[in-house]
C-alpha cells in the first residue's frame, strides 16, 4: 500500500495539537481518544480519522502528490504512538499524573518531529532495538512493494 506522504504529515500535525491539549488539560479521556485514533490508523491507514479528514478537506485543495510513500513505516509509527498514549491514558485515569505527563510528552515529541521535520522516531528506534536485542534473521524483510 502506498500513501500520499502529506497525509501522515497532516495527521501528525493534528496529533501534535491534540497531545498539547492532553498535557495542558491532563485529560485521560482525551488521551484515550487519541490512543483510539492511533489504534485505528495502525490497523488500517485508510480508516485513520485524521487521514479521512485530510482526504476530504485538505487533499482536494492540493496538487497531486509528486511522490508516494510506503504505508508500513506509518503503521509502525502509529503503533508506537498508541503504546505511549495508552500508557498516558492509564497514568492520567489512575491518578499517576507524572506517568501520564512523561508518556504524553514522548508521544508529543515524536508527533512534532513527524509533523515539522518528517522524521519518524519510532521507525529509527526499531532498528536500534533490533540491534541491541535481536539475532540476525535469515530472510529479507524489506517488502518487495517498497522497492
Amino acid at each position: 500500500m502506498l500513501l500520499d506522504p502529506r497525509g501522515p504529515r497532516f495527521a501528525a500535525a493534528v496529533t501534535t495539537v491534540v497531545l498539547v491539549l492532553v498535557l495542558i488539560l491532563t485529560s485521560g479521556w482525551l488521551a484515550l481518544a487519541q490512543a483510539a485514533v492511533f489504534a485505528v490508523t495502525a490497523a488500517n491507514p485508510r480508516f485513520g480519522p485524521y487521514g479521512i479528514l485530510y482526504r476530504t478537506l485538505v487533499a482536494p485543495r492540493l496538487s497531486r502528490p509528486t511522490e508516494l510513500e510506503p504505508a508500513e513505516p506509518v503503521r509502525f509509527a502509529q503503533l508506537v504512538g498508541f503504546a505511549f498514549t495508552a500508557v498516558a491514558t492509564v497514568g492520567f485515569l489512575t491518578g499517576v499524573t507524572a506517568l501520564g505527563l512523561v508518556a504524553a510528552a514522548f508521544a508529543l515529541i515524536a508527533a512534532f518531529l513527524s509533523a515539522a521535520f518528517g522524521l519518524c522516531l519510532g521507525c529509527e528506534a526499531y532498528l536500534v532495538l533490533r540491534r541491541l536485542t535481536g539475532r540476525p534473521l535469515p530472510a529479507r524483510r524489506v517488502p518487495a512493494a517498497t522497492r
Partner: peptide
C-alpha cells in the same frame, strides 16, 4: 504544569 511539560517537549523536538 502540563503546559510547561508540553513546551519543553516541543523545544526538545525542535
Amino acid at each position: 504544569g502540563g503546559a510547561l511539560v508540553a513546551l519543553l517537549a516541543l523545544l526538545a523536538a525542535a
